[in-house]
Design a protein around this nucleic acid. Structure first.
Length: 593
DNA sequence: GCCGTTTTCGGCCCGACTGTTTTCAGTCG
């Protein structure tokens, strides 16, 4: 079972307890939901953790749930889960995927109207049967129908960061046309720079919230107004993208920024901390105790808000309730890496034709060097894919690589004459496929032409964990191999990452001075943030590579930096932050025979 | 059902919006 399937199962359990008695089970429900969230965000497959006896190390999984999951892994089922859910019709969980349809609604539709498919649902709506149920009416029936039509057309997807940013920019531009908008910011997972974005969250500071809301819901591109209140509203945009707006007075804007940035778990943890201090936190501000009559303390900025709770300012990227609050208490927050720290790009594909196994780049080496200069880099690496193995014999591969070596040497000669460009050196590298059985498709005489090599997986993604781990290590061991590129080989929304024994990989890299890439392509962002955090903890050296196949792709560096920041990365953890001399020293170091 | 700067027992975030059952339940973030 995958983590996603387990998370879904735990959420179904929470739903079951909600139906049984949502008051009595209140905290059990929360516990199951928290466990589900934790499983979804875990950096390893739960099955692997169970293999290693580490199930209970996942925060949110305790004695009881761990036991049930163990039974599930051992026997394929859990008696307790089956018992709790035995009377629930399976289709209710499908209905719950429609936004606005929760546990109670779904159960009622299935149990009282016998709905067993989406076709049944449509029939029930057409006949008006839903409106006749107690607790429902014409309007709620219509709301379910509209929501269903959106969902049927396009189930809510998570969007890549650059796309979500663009959509948000459109809304923000529209909001700024209203003169009552004092400040406007994109928040939520967009501000936390997560790899994918669900809803788009936007906050506004204004003394006239109702006027701003009115302007917002008139956004010309909106296909539907989901909600409209006095200080908040939600729209649906084409492609079934939801945009949520919250407005507050400028005097309390800091609290709104903080609240709406999230994450949910970070906020919950903050509020629990506040309670222990005798304070109550909401998106309006902070009160003494929970009493309604107590005076509200306002915060115009986030720094003061965190300070009030005895915390250092926590950067949005690490607000995930993953140790950042404890670190902020103890003044142990990392000084996160910044884009301006980056002095190089270590994965670029030029158009220099070496008859590659995969796609060739589109821009010339010369143009790429100019662009690198514009970005202020000191050095870059050209990392075209290796010459295809099927179309060449060994001698041909060696000859092709020698011709590229000559080209790079010429470039370095002309660079040394050009004082205007900040780039002082280009490295001759290669992105080499790791063969299914391990090993590399480039003969040693070809490897000798390189300054260093990247290796990566482009085939056989579904090997078992230990086999895959051996495969990777057999490639990394080669003395010319320096970087493990896009290590999980995931493609966001398209392909899951491979299974690897990460502690073993990281230990190996640490011991042999091998580096692990953060691929900056927004569709990859690989290593993912949770694994970056593990790598940083271990002390593994990381690299940035934009994987640009066109010189404009070099602008994607910022997305890699986002991931690094989310993984608690400092300047010292990333080799790209070294200047040329330091970098060459690092490259020469322990890696040479 | 989980978890701990005080706690192995006794807590567990806080509020907006909608529709319907006119005082609240359901859903969401």
């Amino acid at each position: 079972m995958t983590n996603l399937e387990i998370a879904e199962l735990l959420r179904d359990m929470a739903a079951a307890y909600q139906l049984q008695d949502d008051r009595k089970n209140r905290f059990k429900i929360i516990a199951y939901q928290r466990a589900a969230d934790a499983v979804e965000h875990a950096s390893s497959e739960l099955k692997d953790l169970w293999d290693d006896g580490k199930l209970k190390e996942v925060p949110g999984i305790g004695e009881s749930i761990a036991d049930h999951l163990s039974e599930l892994f051992e026997t394929g089922k859990s008696k307790h889960f089956i018992e709790v859910m035995k009377d629930l019709p399976p289709f209710m969980f499908e209905l719950m995927k429609i936004p606005g349809v929760g546990v109670k609604t779904a159960y009622k539709l299935v149990s009282e109207l016998g709905i067993k498919s989406f076709t049944d649902l449509k029939k029930a709506i057409k006949s008006g049967a839903i409106a006749k149920l107690s607790g429902f009416g014409e309007e709620s029936q219509a709301a379910i129908f509209k929501s269903f039509l959106d969902f049927e057309k396009k189930p809510p997807a998570r969007h890549l960061l650059p796309y979500a940013s663009e959509v948000a920019d459109g809304v923000i531009t529209w909001l700024k046309e209203n003169k009552n908008v004092v400040k406007v910011d994109p928040l939520g997972s967009l501000r936390r720079r997560a790899a994918t974005i669900g809803d788009i969250d936007i906050s506004v500071a204004s003394t006239k919230p109702d006027d701003v809301v009115k302007h917002f819901v008139a956004y010309p591109k909106a296909t539907r107004v989901l909600e409209k209140g006095t200080r908040s509203a939600s729209l649906i945009l084409p492609g079934n993208i939801q945009v949520d707006l919250m407005v507050t007075d400028p005097s309390g804007y800091g609290s709104l920024l903080q609240h709406f940035t999230g994450s949910k778990h970070h906020n919950i943890a903050l509020r629990e901390r506040a309670l222990k201090m005798g304070l109550s936190v909401s998106d309006y501000g902070i009160k003494k105790n929970k009493s309604k009559n107590n005076k509200l303390e306002l915060f115009s900025n986030e720094e003061d808000f965190y300070k009030r709770l005895g915390l250092e300012y926590i950067p949005p990227e690490i607000r995930e309730d993953a140790g950042e609050i404890e670190a902020a208490v103890n003044h142990k927050l990392p000084k996160l890496i910044e884009l301006s720290d980056v002095k190089s790009d270590l994965q670029i594909h030029s158009s220099f034709d070496i008859e590659t196994s995969h796609d060739l780049g589109e821009s010339s080496m010369e143009k790429i060097i100019d662009r690198a200069g514009e970005l202020g880099y000191q050095y870059i690496a050209f990392t075209e894919h290796n010459p295809s193995k099927s179309k060449h014999n060994e001698k041909q591969i060696i000859d092709i690589l020698k011709s590229k070596r000559e080209k790079i040497d010429q470039l370095n000669y002309s660079i040394s004459k050009n004082k205007k460009n900040s780039v002082k050196k280009v490295f001759n590298s290669l992105e080499i496929d790791i063969l299914t059985e391990g090993g590399l498709p480039v003969p040693d005489a070809g490897m000798e032409t390189l300054d260093f090599a990247l290796v990566s997986i482009h085939s056989s993604f579904r090997l078992p964990r230990e086999e895959m781990t051996k495969r990777i290590l057999s490639a990394l061991i080669h003395p010319k191999v320096q970087v493990f590129a896009h290590p999980t080989a995931r493609k966001i929304n398209d392909r899951e990452g491979v299974e690897l024994n990460w502690p073993e990989i990281f230990d190996f890299c640490l011991k042999h001075n091998k580096w692990v890439e953060i691929n900056c392509d927004p569709a990859r962002l690989d290593l993912p943030d949770v694994l970056v955090k593990e790598a940083v903890k271990t002390g593994v050296i990381l690299t940035f590579g934009t994987d640009a196949h066109h010189m404009d792709g070099m602008y994607n560096m910022e997305f890699g930096v986002n991931v690094a920041r989310r993984g608690w990365c400092e300047k010292k953890n990333v080799v790209n932050c070294l200047n040329l001399i330091e970098f060459e020293k690092m490259l020469g170091g322990e890696n040479k025979k």
